[in-house]
């Protein structure tokens, strides 16, 4: 490691080693960060179940992450379903198979858009505030204060959020799916005149349990990704370069939203390819 750092030093003779040293250092830093994150996540998961269980705190977070996201999730679900109805009709009519509109809308929502868009919406609403809140507690030494009082900061701050996300995400996803299907019905059946019976009938026949369970699994994975990444980036605000104090918290919040969103999309691909 030292040799590598020397090689990257500005005073070191210019040579082919410099870019390698820089890359090496970046990779090592990334590995260290990933290791720290994995430990943080495992610790937070384990502490959900260590005594004393504090269901009150988990309920408060369910209220914040789940309950308060209901409106925005319902609204986005409605419009997503409506646009799917329109776009789906446009494509299907070309093949004369507009009767398949119901099943197309439902599968797109249940398998894909429900879990992903719910996760992205909740990241924007609740994930950002998790990172900001924990980040401010970090820079104002409130986390250190918890530590000196022998109150485990991870159990106190992170575990309830993780548990609440695991409960809330699948439920919000289900809501998104149902309202989305209603949106598709609205545009497909009521506006464009697809037969109501065929819409619902094909939907019922076409959607299988494996589609629903796949979407459920995705929403669970996204719950863990979003809550742990946002909490971790807030929790480690002080360890990151690029700004102290308020700016540091701002950076952490931005990083939390961007990282969670990207990871949601990446893992969506990975999970889909495994579930197919």
């Amino acid at each position: 490691m030292n040799d590598l750092e020397n090689a990257a030093d500005a005073t070191a003779p210019l040579g082919v080693a410099t870019p390698f040293a820089l890359t090496g250092r970046k990779v090592l830093a990334l590995l260290r960060e990933l290791g720290a994150f994995a430990l943080f996540l495992l610790m937070a998961l384990a502490r959900i179940f260590t005594l004393p269980l504090k269901p009150q705190r988990i309920l408060e977070q369910i209220h914040f992450i789940g309950m308060k996201s209901l409106f925005v999730v319902a609204l986005t679900g409605l419009f997503t379903g409506m646009v799917l109805g329109l776009q789906g009709y446009y494509v299907l009519i070309k093949f004369g198979s507009e009767t398949a509109l119901g099943v197309m809308v439902a599968l797109a929502l249940i398998r894909e858009l429900g879990p992903v868009l719910t996760a992205l919406m909740v990241t924007g609403r609740a994930g950002s505030s998790m990172a900001a809140e924990i980040g401010i507690m970090r820079i104002s030494e409130q986390i250190d204060a918890l530590d000196t009082m022998d109150i485990d900061p991870v159990k106190f701050l992170v575990s309830p959020r993780l548990a609440a996300a695991i409960v809330s995400f699948p439920l919000l996803t289900a809501l998104f799916d149902v309202i989305g299907i209603m949106g598709g019905y609205l545009t497909g059946v009521i506006m464009l005149g697809v037969n109501s019976g065929t819409f619902m009938g094909r939907l019922e026949n076409g959607v299988e349990w494996v589609d629903v369970s796949g979407g459920f699994l995705k929403s669970l994975a996204f719950a863990i990704i979003v809550s742990s990444v946002c909490c971790y980036l807030g929790y480690t605000t002080d360890r990151r370069g690029g700004g102290f104090g308020a700016r540091g918290v701002g950076n952490a919040t931005t990083a939390a939203v961007v990282t969670s969103s990207v990871l949601v999309l990446v893992f969506d691909y990975v999970l889909t390819s495994f579930l197919m």
Partner: peptide, 13 residues
């Protein structure tokens, strides 16, 4: 042991 922080570190919420 109790620790009193320079900036108090009160839980502001």
């Amino acid at each position: 042991v109790s620790y009193m922080f320079q900036n108090n570190a009160l839980f502001d919420s």
